[in-house]
Design a protein around this nucleic acid. Sequence first.
DNA 1: CTGTTAGCGCTTTCAA
DNA 2: TTGAAAGCGCTAACAG
Lengths: 335, 335
Amino acid sequence: MPSPPTRATLIDVAKLAGTSKSSVSRFFGPERDKLSQSLQQRVAEAAATLGYHPNQMARGLKGGGSRLLGMMVADIRNPFSVAVMHGVELACRDFGYSLIVCNTDNDPALEQHHLATLAAYQVEGLIINAVGQPGQALLESGVPVVLLDRDIHHLDAEVIGLDNALAIDMALTHLAQQGYRSLLYVSEAPEHTSTRQARLDRFQKQADAMGFSRQTLMLSRQDIDTPCAGLAAFVEPHAPGHCAVLCANGNATLAMARCFKQLDVAMGPVGLMGIDELEWCELMTPGVTTLAQPTDSIGRDAVACLVNQLERRATPLAFHSRHSPRLLARGSTAP
Amino acid sequence: MPSPPTRATLIDVAKLAGTSKSSVSRFFGPERDKLSQSLQQRVAEAAATLGYHPNQMARGLKGGGSRLLGMMVADIRNPFSVAVMHGVELACRDFGYSLIVCNTDNDPALEQHHLATLAAYQVEGLIINAVGQPGQALLESGVPVVLLDRDIHHLDAEVIGLDNALAIDMALTHLAQQGYRSLLYVSEAPEHTSTRQARLDRFQKQADAMGFSRQTLMLSRQDIDTPCAGLAAFVEPHAPGHCAVLCANGNATLAMARCFKQLDVAMGPVGLMGIDELEWCELMTPGVTTLAQPTDSIGRDAVACLVNQLERRATPLAFHSRHSPRLLARGSTAP
DNA sequence: CTGTTAGCGCTTTCAA
DNA sequence: TTGAAAGCGCTAACAG
């Protein structure tokens, strides 16, 4: 008994239920109540026996909207991105949208490619963790956009993410309380990433204001695995308990943790702290102090913000643009 | 100057190019060569000035296929899953498909929900990392399916993943070489997961054959964070250098690493080894020995296998079902 | 409440 | 080579 080679359609259901296309359509739309109980009954049965599900493609075609949202992630292998994506997924489901996720692998060309793809599938809105500056193409498409974590020049869209100034302030306050006086700030190259730039700026300004002595170390693509010389040079002239390393994100923290290990520098006597919580930060002796981002909330709020633009809601969804981190103090900042 | 509120359509392009819908359609399909050079020229220009891109939804409607693949991931926060997903993405792009990824968060109900959604969007094929046993619904939909890592009963689909028997054998051989004689095998509850069962079975059979003394520890949902008592009981009666813990996957390795730390058990004297490579395994002193899975290849081959079913290719794409792991020997198995 | 009638944007015969 | 016409599965007026 060969299974039906082609999926059941609206017409099949209508026939079986002895009614018209419109009624079946209504049954699956928002006007179900306008059908008599008996008709609803018949349609429901017919649909069930045929295993019918409305074809979203066809639905989208007729002005109904695709109910699809698109998400661009700069680096899918970054746990932070995945955590945010998880929040986005949850929220999408709550609001009745489906989600296509594209990973750009930090490649602006790929970003353009995926943008075109998403447009082709008629996504109704876009959540973008940008790598390049794809402003042009975006504006042309006219699709509502929300930016995640990173700003894009000349694009007037809401940016949802960490409150970078607050995060830096919290880090500096903690490090000061623990008695550190001299800081090394480690970041990936900030040139094209607004978030990195914002954190760096705040660090420089605030560290000075708080009387820290400070240096910075920029990780370039090549030496992300071996920035150890920079660490060695920083640590060498300092007495234990006086100097600490502050990492601008998870990647920087990982790179520095490797260096501490490679150079056999003791954590704590030399402080280590990072923005972004990672699985191993708690595991490693004596534990790495971090500022955890509320990734789920960030994801949810990005969707909420987008849905506000998509639907004219009686009471707009509440959301925050700048989220507060949570301090997880551990042994790496106990001198 | 308000941007065009509605995206350009085939007709707009046809008008501007002074030709008919069909010709424009051909231009964007596989029959572009059948158009005269001059016509191609005009269409290309018109499309460019209008910023036109074909609407995939509409294309899919008319038998052309959606060019969409669906992927279900049991746990998006598991680095292994993400790594495989990355391989899947790459392959999809190579073959000209787009991908909708759904995360089931290990919830069978959500799995059903997403399956319905993917069907609604007319995905042409499915790559499934199953959590439940969604065989029924799947067979009904009649969509080609490839299984990732985990088997589903009564579903006759190819399973792509690690060669579990080989992995266990490699682990046992390594542990024997390092001098360990007594093993504790740690796994999440294997009831509903074929992979876990396969690894466990092989472990029991092969450990006996190789003359190991053996025990097993099953992690349940509740105590995944505190299986330390089990570890303590295992370690207590053994002399250093004789006993080792073998973890069936990344989650188990993480749980055990936490216990080693909490109980202050020295790694090496008590061995620790796991299937699945994780970022921190190298970082933690003295390093955790793992069997790394070729995640990219697994993802690619899953797509290749699916595409073979979707397209009648002159020469079917080559792919492997059972992949070999790579041993990363580190300090945790140096007694 | 329910059915009829047009399309949505595109592909695809079938002629020209 | 090119164009005209007939839908794909569904929604949305518009009548009954």
